[in-house]
């Protein structure tokens, strides 16, 4: 057995060179790539961890914000409910006051309107009554009607106290007899005679006619006025109705 020292030397150098070559061109690039991949993976994991941590923090923030929103929402709702209740009460009171005010105004207006309408109706009724009476009495002109009015006139004068009758019939007393229609001579004589019976002396009477009396016979003197006509009666009724309307 012999050793070829040249071969031993060459092989030693060859393997040394091969160690350098593989270390330079094989192991170093691959190990660097492995290290870079591990580093990249570690960076990605760190980034993922950081992102996960950020996401958790964001979720916690969102949860806190949501909780704050809920509390704020509850507070706002309570405040809004309170304000709405207050506003509702104020509106109700205002509406109630306005309604009462309008009701009072309406009642007043209704009362005024009702009074005015009632007055107008009464006036119209009175006017119609007068007109009706005028139309009816227009057909009653005659001796009998005048006789009735003359009786009523004499009764009114006779109802006066005797002292007052004597004063009325003092010397120089002058009377005016107004009838709704002109009296003929006979009626004038009878009126003068019957009045003389009551007064105790023959009075001086001037006879006149006034259609506005409607019907009747009135006597006017210096100290005496006897309204004995339908115009006077209707006027009295109208005044009484007016008193009832305006108590």
């Amino acid at each position: 057995m012999t050793i070829d020292w040249w071969t031993l030397g060459f092989q030693t150098v060859n393997v040394l060179i091969l160690i350098w070559l593989l270390g330079r061109f094989f192991f170093k690039p691959l190990s660097r790539m492995i290290a870079e991949r591990k580093e990249a993976a570690a960076d990605m994991l760190a980034e993922a961890e950081a992102a996960h941590r950020n996401a958790e923090e964001a979720l916690e923030g969102i949860a806190a914000t949501r909780a704050g929103f809920a509390e704020e929402r509850e507070a706002l709702l309570r405040k809004a409910r309170g304000e709405a209740e207050t506003l509702r009460q104020e509106m109700l009171e205002a509406a109630k006051a306005e309604a009462e005010k309008r009701l009072a105004a309406a009642e007043t207006e209704i009362a005024h309107k009702a009074g005015a309408e009632r007055a107008a109706l009464q006036a119209e009724a009175a006017r119609l009554a007068v007109e009706i009476a005028q139309r009816l009495l227009a057909r009653l002109h005659g001796a009998k009607a005048m006789e009735v009015f003359l009786d009523d006139l004499l009764k009114a004068v006779a109802a006066l106290p005797s002292a007052e009758r004597r004063t009325i019939a003092a010397n120089g007393a002058h009377f005016t007899a107004v009838s709704s229609a002109p009296l003929d001579q006979q009626e004038q004589t009878r009126c003068r005679d019957r009045l003389a019976e009551i007064l105790g002396r023959q009075p001086a009477i001037e006879f006149q006619s006034d259609p506005s009396l409607i019907a009747g016979l009135e006597l006017k003197g210096e100290h005496l006025t006897v309204e004995n006509s339908w115009r006077a009666d209707l006027e009295t009724i109208r005044r009484e109705l007016g008193h009832e309307r305006n108590p």
Partner: peptide
């Protein structure tokens, strides 16, 4: 003197070097 083991070793070295260069020239992640 150059023996056969030396030549074969040189051939293996050339093969490994060429293979290493070719295999590692386009490394990526």
């Amino acid at each position: 003197s150059i023996s056969a083991p030396v030549v074969v070793t040189w051939a293996l070295m050339a093969f490994l070097l060429a293979g290493s260069v070719l295999a590692t020239r386009r490394l990526s992640l």
